[in-house]
Design a protein around this nucleic acid. Structure first.
Lengths: 171, 171
DNA sequence: CCTATTTGATTCCGATTTGAACTACATATA
DNA sequence: TATATGTAGTTCAAATCGGAATCAAATAGG
């Protein structure tokens, strides 16, 4: 360990017990919730959580369609990951690609009727699962605080561009 | 859509605006935080967040060692994923495998001195990053509530075995 | 003691993810 | 207009992951 390391370490403000509890809780909840949601969607519908989110985003957008990069920012995934996922969704016929008239480089992902249908079939069970896994553990007050706190974390981080992709957004 | 689907959908208790905000905030924070932490560790230390957690768990355990399955439960990953990650950590010399004396099927992951060192070098920067990304966005009150709420979500889910692995734990 | 079942861990294979090219088009600048 | 630079999206190879199959060892039940 260098002298600088030592200096840094000595100056480090370690996490308090309360902070540690919050941080530990966060990543445990993260794993556990994402896992449960994904497993539920996959077993009931054969959809990954990511694919579901894509369908959901598209369904809530005008023309049921979005530019690839916009969609990538909305679901917070890399462009190459989105390319792959949309390709999968295209194979099942839930999404279709169209070329962008205004920008010939662009591609537009469009939710098909079949995709819309699948989303409608998947949604009730999904919401049930979210309630079971997430909300059933929370008091109404906690829900409010979580909303503020987590939104604040996300927005803040999306401000500071993380040195890499996925900036913009912030509507 | 079948009649049953329709019935289910009609009965579905959709998310309120407040709930939607909390849920949306949760998964946006999830993506954003995990991404930032991982990117930070990877660029500064060449470690994934998962690998860091393994080192951290081991360092806090007696003998700096844990049975593979115990470790898997603690960091909430599948066994095959842990096998892979520990193998990676073995290549860099941060972790060593020992055979379990009491149970010849078992394997024990042990944090080496080199690994301990690496952890000490990585920790201060990691904590700084956690503060920057997570705590700087929160008030002290929010930290407390988050601690309760998220711990509750995680514990609850770990109770109900998710039909699949990673039960036990709950110390 | 001997078979049947369970458990700990790894292996294997296919699916997914990443980041670095790469292609094609768009925009700015001179 | 020509050149340079930036942007949208995909592709490619390598890394990672999940889950079923596998192997060895432990444990249960007769």
């Amino acid at each position: 360990m260098t002298t600088e390391d030592r200096r840094r370490e000595d100056e480090t403000e370690w996490l308090s017990e309360t902070e540690m509890r919050a941080w530990l809780g966060f990543w445990r909840a993260m794993r556990v919730v994402d896992d449960a949601i994904d497993r539920d969607l996959r077993s009931r519908m054969g959809l990954s959580h990511g694919e579901y989110q894509i369908l959901a985003m598209l369904s809530a957008s005008p023309e049921r369609s979005l530019r690839m990069s916009t969609l990538a920012n909305m679901v917070l995934v890399t462009r190459s990951r989105l390319t792959y996922q949309v390709t999968q969704l295209e194979k099942t016929g839930f999404v279709r690609r169209e070329e962008c008239p205004s920008d010939k480089r662009g591609a537009i992902a469009v939710l098909t009727d079949k995709g819309m249908n699948e989303l409608h079939r998947a949604a009730p069970g999904h919401v049930e699962c979210v309630r079971r896994v997430f909300f059933d553990a929370l008091t109404p007050e906690q829900v409010v605080v979580l909303g503020d706190a987590l939104t604040s974390i996300a927005d803040r981080q999306l401000q500071h561009p993380p040195t890499n992709q996925a900036p913009s957004e912030v509507p």
